[in-house]
Each structure stands twice: as structure tokens, then as C-alpha cells.
Simulated assay, not measured.
Amino acid sequence: MKKSILNLGKALSKEEQKEITGKGGHSPEFCSANSDCSPGLGCCEGECMTTFDWLNVCG
């Protein structure tokens, strides 16, 4: 079931993601690497998050 859910729709570009979240508002920030995130945040599963959250999700 997880695979069928993950295969729905299409991958969005950063510009399309920003459009959905209000032109790149405060949160969430989307990323493909840590360098895409604001200082103090890390990239995990395509989203910038704090070190604490990163450790809980991607650690």
C-alpha cells in the first residue's frame, strides 16, 4: 500500500513547491542538500528541519 501511495502524482519542482506553500514562506523549506537550507537547519527527506527534528526523522 505504501508503494501505491508514494507513486501517486508527480514530483514537484522547487518553484512549484514554493507556490503551494506561499512563495517560500517560513516553513517548510524544501531542499535536496543541507546547503539548500537556512543556517542551523539540515535537509532530511526533502525538507529543511532543525537538528533535533532531523535526528528523530533521519538520524
Rank of each mutant, 00 (worst) to 15 (best):
M1F: 15
M1N: 05
K2T: 05
K2C: 11
K2A: 07
K3E: 13
K3V: 07
K3M: 06
S4V: 11
S4L: 15
S4A: 09
I5T: 11
I5L: 13
I5E: 11
L6W: 06
L6Q: 09
N7V: 07
N7A: 04
N7P: 03
L8T: 07
L8Y: 00
L8N: 07
L8F: 04
G9C: 03
G9D: 07
K10H: 05
K10P: 05
K10A: 14
A11W: 13
A11G: 13
L12F: 12
S13I: 07
K14M: 12
K14V: 15
K14W: 14
K14L: 15
E15L: 14
E15H: 14
E15M: 11
E15D: 10
E16I: 02
E16W: 09
E16Y: 06
E16D: 08
Q17M: 14
Q17H: 06
K18E: 00
K18V: 05
K18N: 08
E19Y: 14
E19F: 14
T21H: 07
T21G: 02
T21F: 10
G22R: 04
G22K: 00
G22A: 01
G22P: 00
G22I: 02
K23D: 12
G24I: 01
G24H: 03
G25M: 05
H26T: 09
H26F: 12
H26S: 13
H26Q: 08
S27C: 10
S27I: 04
P28I: 05
P28Q: 02
P28S: 02
F30R: 07
F30A: 03
C31I: 04
C31L: 01
C31P: 00
C31N: 02
S32M: 12
S32E: 14
S32W: 07
A33R: 02
A33W: 08
A33K: 06
S35Y: 06
S35P: 05
S35R: 09
D36P: 14
C37V: 03
C37M: 01
C37H: 01
C37Q: 01
P39L: 10
G40Q: 02
L41Y: 08
L41N: 03
L41K: 09
G42A: 14
G42F: 14
G42Q: 15
G42T: 10
G42W: 09
G42I: 12
C43S: 11
C43H: 00
C43P: 00
C43D: 06
C44W: 06
C44K: 03
C44F: 02
C44L: 00
E45H: 13
E45C: 10
E45N: 13
G46R: 11
E47P: 02
E47R: 11
E47V: 15
C48D: 13
C48G: 09
C48N: 08
M49D: 02
M49T: 12
M49R: 10
M49Q: 11
T51E: 12
F52D: 10
F52W: 11
F52A: 12
D53H: 15
D53C: 13
D53G: 13
D53F: 14
D53I: 09
D53Y: 12
D53A: 15
W54N: 11
W54L: 15
W54P: 05
W54H: 14
L55F: 04
L55Q: 11
N56P: 05
N56S: 02
V57Q: 09
V57G: 10
C58Q: 00
C58W: 00
G59R: 01
